[in-house]
Design a protein around this nucleic acid. Structure first.
Length: 587
RNA sequence: GCACCCAUAGCUCAACUGGAUAGAGCAACGCACUUCUAAUGCGUAGGUUACAGGUUCAAGUCCUGUUGGGUGUGCCA
C-alpha cells in the first residue's frame, strides 16, 4: 500500500464525516510535498472546496484535521491559505522501509488492467548503418518496453525496419553496377553505405538514374529473382551489423516485421480502401482524402496555401503503381490489431513525422480500427555543439557505432585516472559500460520533446547529473557489504529497523517514491521522470552516507543502516535496469 | 501563408500535470579526506519563467495575442 493513497483514503473518510460535498472525488488527493519544509505530503483539498462550500479554506482544513484518523501514520498541520501538511512519523518510515526492503518489486505496483501494447521503435533502414538519429527512438522505446512489462502489460517490441523502400532501389541499382565483393566480406555495412551514396550522388547528377532506381524497387516488389537475391543478401549483412549494435546497447526485440513483411497484404488492402470509398484516384495516385467532418485547421488531410485550404491526401499507391510507407503502415496497424490483438501501439518516432501519424491514425479509425489506441511518442532533435542538428564534417549524420566508440574512449580516460580497479581488462570493461550507458542515460534524462546538445565530455564526466554518478552511489553502497562476511545480508533483521536521523528519513522518503515514479513514466511517455528521480535518490544516499556511519555504528542503528544501503542499491539497480542500463559492481 | 513543437539562472536541464519562497548539475567562490570508494558531501552567489493580456482562491504550467527559433506542408521514410 502506497502512503499517498492511504492518506487520500483517510482524507476522503474525513470529508464524508464532516458532510462536505465533493464534486469530483478523483481530484481529491494527498501528494508528496514539493517543499520538505512543509512536511512530507500535502493536500490542497480545503482550498479547492472552499469556494463551492462558501467557507473559509482554513476553517475547512481545521474541521478536516479534527476528523482525520491518521495519528498512527503522520502528524497533520494547517499552513498558509489552507494547506493540510502531513509529516510522516519515524515509526511509519521504518515500517515503509521494511516493507519495501522485503518486497522483491521494491513497491512498484502492477496496473489493475494489463493491456497488450505494441511498441514500434528503432526501425532503422537496412542497407544503411544506424546513425545518431536512431539513438532516441531505440533507447526510449526499449525503456518504455521495460517499464510497461514491469507494470504488468503484455509488451510486444517490434522492429519495423525499413527493408522495402526507395533506398533499396538505390542500393540495388548501384549493386548491379559496381558491387565490390571483396569489401562486402571485410566491411559489409560500409560497402552497402558506399553503394547507397554512389546511387544518391548519381541521382543528383542525372534525373534518369532516379527513375532507374525506382524501377529497381518496382522490380523487387514484383518479385524479380535477381533483385530479390540482392535484397536477401543486403538484409542478411545488415542484420548482422544491427544485432551487434543492439547487443551493445542491451536492446532487444520480439519481432522484426519490417516493411517487406506486409508486401503481400498491400494490394488487397488498397482494394478494400477503394471499395469502402476511403480512397480514390487523383493525379494518377490512389489517395485518401478528408471526410470533411471537422475544421480544416484540425484536419490532417488539409493544408493551407496562399490563404486557401487545399486537399492534402494520404497517398496509398503512387502513380508508378508502387506502394509507399503509408500503405505499409496501415497494413501494419491491421496486422497488429487482428493478429496480436494489440490494444495500444506506441510509435517512438521523430516529431517531424507527426503529420504522417495524424493521417495514419485517422485512416485507421475510418477503416474500422477505432478501438485500438494509437500514439505517436514523438521526440526532438539531437544537436551538435554549434546548436544545429548533429552532423559530421562531411555533412552526414554520425554513425551510431562511431559515436559509441567515442564515448567509450572518453570514458576510458576518466576510468584510467580514477578507477580503483586493478587490471587493464577490468578498466576496459568498465569504460565500455560507462561510455555506452552514459549516452543512454543522457538521452533518457532529457524531456523527449526537447532538442539537446550531444556533448560526450559532459556525459562521461566525473561529476554532475550523469550515469557515472548513479553508478558510484550503487558501488559505494555495495562496497559496504564486501567488508562483511559472505551472506551478511541474509542475516539482517528488519524487525529492528530504526529510522531517526534526518538524512536517514530523507533517504527513506525518496525510496518510498520509487513505485510512483516508475508508473508515472507511462502517463506521458517520460523516462526522464524516472531518470531525474534516480539522481535525486542517489543524492540523498550520498548525503546519508556522509552523515551516517554504517559499519562503525552499533546495534539496531548499524543493522538499520545496512538495510538502507542494501535497499538503496537494489532500488538504484532496479530503476536503472528499467531505463535499460546495467550497473557495475566496482569502479 | 498555414499547421505542429519549443522558449525557465551565464551554460545544460528539472519542476510529480494548477499549489506555498521556481529546483538540480556545470562553470565561479569557500569548507570537509591518516575515517565504510572524495567519481563524494556541506555552504555562498546566480531568476520579472521571451513579452502582453485573460481564466482561477492559486499560473512556469490552462486560454488568447505578440516576438524569436525549430520542423512540416502531394507521390522520401
Amino acid at each position: 500500500m502506497n502512503i499517498s493513497k492511504l492518506l487520500t483514503e483517510k482524507l476522503l473518510a474525513a470529508l464524508a464525516e464532516i458532510g462536505l460535498e465533493v464534486p469530483d472525488p478523483s481530484r481529491i488527493q494527498v501528494k508528496p510535498a514539493d517543499d520538505l519544509r512543509y512536511g512530507d505530503y500535502q493536500s490542497t483539498v480545503a482550498m479547492m472546496l472552499a469556494k463551492p462550500a462558501g467557507k473559509n479554506p482554513r476553517v475547512i482544513a481545521s474541521e478536516l484535521m479534527e476528523h482525520l484518523d491518521v495519528a498512527a501514520l503522520a502528524e497533520v498541520s494547517i499552513a498558509g491559505p489552507g494547506f493540510l501538511n502531513f509529516t510522516i512519523t519515524s515509526e511509519t518510515w521504518s515500517v515503509l522501509a521494511k516493507k519495501q526492503w522485503q518486497d522483491p518489486n521494491h513497491s512498484v505496483q502492477v496496473v489493475p488492467k494489463p493491456e497488450t501494447v505494441v511498441i514500434d521503435f528503432s526501425a532503422p533502414n537496412v542497407a544503411k548503418p544506424m546513425h545518431i538519429g536512431h539513438i532516441r527512438s531505440t533507447i526510449i522505446g526499449e525503456c518504455l518496453g521495460r517499464i510497461a512489462s514491469r507494470l504488468g502489460h503484455k509488451v510486444i517490441k517490434d522492429n519495423h525496419i525499413g527493408d522495402w523502400g526507395t533506398q533499396f532501389g538505390m542500393v540495388t541499382w548501384a549493386w548491379k553496377k559496381e558491387v565490390n565483393e571483396e569489401q562486402l566480406r571485410i566491411e559489409p555495412l560500409q560497402e552497402l553505405l558506399r553503394l547507397y551514396r554512389s546511387a544518391t550522388d548519381a541521382c543528383k547528377e542525372d534525373e534518369s538514374i532516379k527513375d532507374a532506381c525506382r524501377q529497381e524497387l518496382v522490380a523487387l516488389q514484383d518479385g524479380n529473382p535477381e533483385n530479390l537475391a540482392i535484397w536477401n543478401r543486403c538484409l542478411e549483412l545488415s542484420r548482422k551489423g544491427l544485432d551487434e549494435i543492439y547487443t551493445r546497447l542491451d536492446v532487444s526485440f520480439d519481432h522484426w516485421l519490417g516493411e517487406s513483411s506486409y508486401n503481400d497484404a498491400l494490394a488487397l488492402l488498397v482494394e478494400k480502401l477503394k471499395s469502402q470509398d476511403l480512397a480514390r484516384e487523383s493525379d494518377g495516385a490512389l489517395c485518401v482524402f478528408s471526410d470533411e467532418s471537422g475544421k480544416p485547421k484540425n484536419d490532417p488531410f488539409k493544408v493551407n496555401r496562399d490563404g486557401e485550404w487545399q486537399d492534402y491526401p494520404m497517398i496509398v499507391r503512387k502513380k508508378d503503381g508502387a506502394f509507399n510507407y503509408a500503405t505499409t503502415d496501415i497494413a501494419t496497424v491491421v496486422f497488429r490489431a487482428d493478429e496480436w490483438k494489440a490494444e495500444k501501439v506506441w510509435y517512438v518516432v521523430d516529431f517531424r513525422q507527426g503529420g504522417h501519424f495524424k493521417q495514419l491514425f485517422e485512416v485507421s479509425r475510418r477503416f474500422g480500427y477505432d478501438q485500438i489506441d494509437l500514439v505517436h511518442v514523438a521526440f526532438g532533435t539531437i544537436l551538435g555543439k554549434d546548436g544545429k542538428p548533429l552532423k559530421t564534417r562531411a555533412g552526414d549524420l554520425p554513425q551510431l557505432a562511431n559515436v559509441l566508440n567515442d564515448a567509450v574512449k572518453a570514458a576510458r580516460e576518466v576510468v584510467g585516472n580514477k578507477s580503483h580497479l586493478n587490471t587493464e581488462e577490468e578498466k576496459d570493461e568498465l569504460a565500455e559500460l560507462i561510455g555506452v550507458n552514459s549516452v543512454k542515460f543522457t538521452e533518457l534524462s532529457h524531456h523527449r520533446m526537447s532538442d539537446y546538445v550531444f556533448d560526450l565530455d559532459k556525459m562521461v564526466a566525473l561529476e554532475g547529473d550523469t550515469a557515472p554518478y548513479l553508478f558510484y552511489s550503487y558501488v559505494r553502497a555495495r562496497s559496504i557489504f564486501r567488508k562483511l562476511e559472505e551472506g551478511a545480508v541474509d542475516t539482517l533483521d528488519a524487525k529492528k529497523l530504526t529510522i531517526t536521523e534526518p538524512a536517514e528519513i530523507h533517504l527513506v522518503r525518496m525510496l518510498t517514491r520509487f513505485g510512483d515514479n516508475v508508473s508515472v513514466v507511462l502517463d506521458d511517455f517520460r523516462p526522464n521522470i524516472l531518470a531525474t528521480y534516480l539522481l535525486e535518490l542517489a543524492r540523498s544516499f550520498h548525503s546519508f552516507f556522509e552523515a551516517c556511519p554504517v559499519l562503525r555504528a552499533e546495534g539496531e542503528t548499524r543493522e538499520s543502516r545496512l538495510i538502507l544501503c542494501d535497499l538503496t542499491s537494489r532500488v538504484i539497480k532496479d530503476g536503472l535496469n528499467l531505463l535499460g542500463i546495467q550497473v557495475p559492481e566496482r569502479m
